[in-house]
Simulated scan of single mutants.
Amino acid sequence: MQAPRPDDVAVLVQRLDERLTGPRPVDDLRRYFGIGLRPGQEAFSGARFEHLGGGGEGAGTADTVTATDLVAVETLSVRIPVELKLGLLEGPVGERLSALLREVPSGVDLADAPAQAVADGSPAARAWKLLTEQQGVGWVIAGKTLARKRPRLLPVYDTVVRCALGRPPSFWSTLRAALGHGGGALHHRLLELREAAGLPDTVSALRVCDVAVWMGHRTDGHACPR
């Protein structure tokens, strides 16, 4: 297992620090999740991602992709191919994914997770690879699907977030190291932002990070190559 490169961790810490500092992240979080909106404003559809149907880690469904999970993933502006939906719900790909999910830690924050939980070759990494091997599925849909099932451990990572934070060789491992850097300063800041925005504890620190970065970079005019 190869540890993330110190230079990559340092760059990610700096970029996260810039994105998570000041009053803007709180305002963006409140806007996204529909807190204190003005008349005529609506929350973003993705505000239901972690809460729809009780969430992806609910008792009895944490290791199985359900129809509700698929709807939740599509609130994040992606469309899952019909063939994959059927395969996840009724086919062998769903059975293979469930077997891998049973080996992925549940209910643990990425900042506190052991390095092997998100390392190359881990069950989580193999689940991501399984999804990306399906026709019509790229890294964005794969990541969002797994983030629904393990919202505290696996981050939402799309083209906007990648543009803002970069693309280290192993994003999960590098993000884990960045969140734990300096005694977990960034992780604690995410929890503080969640509280300041008035969000419930069911919104994970990773989701606070994703939304704050996505909203800020999107407003700044995200124009990075896909």
Rank of each mutant, 00 (worst) to 15 (best):
V11T: 14
R15L: 12
D17G: 15
E18W: 14
R19S: 14
R19K: 10
L20Y: 05
G22Q: 00
G22K: 00
P23D: 00
L29E: 03
R30V: 02
R30K: 14
Y32Q: 07
Y32N: 02
G34P: 08
I35K: 03
G36N: 03
G36M: 02
L37V: 06
R38G: 15
G40E: 09
Q41K: 05
F44C: 04
S45V: 11
G46D: 11
A47F: 07
A47S: 15
H51I: 01
L52P: 02
G53L: 07
G54A: 12
G55C: 07
G56F: 00
G56N: 06
G56M: 01
E57C: 13
A59E: 13
A59T: 13
D63A: 13
T64F: 13
A67M: 01
T68V: 15
D69Q: 06
L70I: 14
L70E: 01
V71C: 08
V71L: 15
L76F: 13
L76V: 06
V78F: 05
I80D: 03
I80K: 02
P81Y: 13
P81F: 13
E83P: 04
K85E: 13
L86E: 14
G87D: 10
E90W: 14
G94S: 07
G94K: 02
L97T: 00
L97R: 00
L100V: 09
L101I: 05
R102E: 12
E103F: 04
E103A: 15
V104M: 10
S106A: 15
D109R: 13
L110C: 04
A111W: 04
A111H: 11
A113I: 09
A113R: 05
A115W: 04
A115I: 06
Q116I: 10
